[in-house]
Design a protein around this nucleic acid. Structure first.
Lengths: 196, 196
DNA sequence: GTCTATATTGAGATAGAC
DNA sequence: GTCTATCTCAATATAGAC
């Protein structure tokens, strides 16, 4: 994003990152070699090392794009003011939009296994995000704004199970736009599939 | 499962498979080397090749355990007779139980990237399963048993996003048992989190 | 059913020229 | 910003003995 880029050979960091993340998502990070990356970039392996000092640093940069955007949602006004249930709705809806807007980066984040310290650091930030959302569920339930027969931690996990799964099938070119998708997620989460 | 096994050194196929799948899930299939596997088994690498002809054949055997159990659900009487909405409920509930009963095998299945023909074959069977469930959602909706303002394909994906995410956090040792978990999933899926 | 080699390939990464 | 080597190491897999 630092400049206009594009023109094929002549990559900047963000350009390399974009292609690399796509490859990581298609084959998995571990299964993607620097050689494969080089092929897809139309570069030699060593050219990649001009932009990133290691394969893992590419991963690190990519993960920051995903987790940073999710963390930012929690700092938005809609997540910090108003009824707990409304703040929860806001976070869920914004999370869907972040997933869609940064699809490849969040996809990568959600598939981590924690093999290295870079991965573990990102996983820890994800857990912290989940804890914050769980706290919101607790607050909304205690305020009598949510059903109280489901454990808030289970509820949070089911909600984000639903939301996170979006990265596995949503494609921006498809018919459904992000607003409609967020609306559907909220509809199922809040009211369920039962006919009314 | 062919015999009683256990006693440490002296593995049968199922014994090797069990340990291997655990390792695959912890580090990812690609990130798990035969050397790591050998260490965790307390064997040499070559001993593994006595039980399985290749690393990929270990994966193949593991995936069969997972996808086979899911496919079997669709053949149970509860999935083939009765109201469409009830059949759908049945499949969702049984799917949760399969996930819990075969947690490591289904976990592995759900994390595939399709890098090899073995993986792609399993993914195709998963897609076929999803298609069958989507058909059930369509049928229930057309029979007026489900809300009709959400695309059945989206609904199916959100439902199984929720269900499949269970493998990422559920641990059998924990407080929540499988029956309760299935009940919670159905509660959210059918009625949502709204207070009633 | 397991072992100790070992063959062979491909990985991540570096050196140094253009 | 990119290239052509090349280093080094770890991976899958095999041979053949116990």
């Amino acid at each position: 994003m630092t400049e206009s880029r594009r023109g094929r050979p002549g990559y900047d960091r963000a350009g390399v990152l974009e292609i690399a993340v796509r490859a990581f998502n298609e084959h998995g990070y571990d299964a993607t070699s620097m050689g494969t990356l080089a092929d897809r970039l139309g570069l030699s392996k060593s050219a990649i090392y001009h932009h990133f000092p290691s394969k893992e640093s590419v991963l690190d940069a990519a993960l920051e794009q995903g987790i940073g955007a999710l963390e930012a949602v929690l700092a938005e006004p809609g997540a910090t003011t108003g009824r707990a249930a409304d703040r929860l709705r806001f976070v869920l809806e914004r999370a869907v939009h972040v997933l869609v807007d940064r699809l490849p980066y969040v996809t990568l984040l959600l598939r981590l296994r924690g093999n290295t310290s870079v991965e573990r650091a990102a996983l820890e930030r994800r857990r912290e995000f989940d804890r914050a959302v769980t706290a919101l569920v607790v607050e909304a339930r205690d305020a009598g704004q949510l059903r109280d027969d489901i454990d808030p931690r289970i509820a949070e996990r089911l909600l984000f199970g639903m939301i996170n799964s979006i990265v596995e099938w949503y494609r921006p070119e498809g018919p459904e736009d992000a607003d409609r998708l967020a609306q559907d997620v909220l509809a199922v989460a809040v009211d369920g599939l039962r006919l009314r």
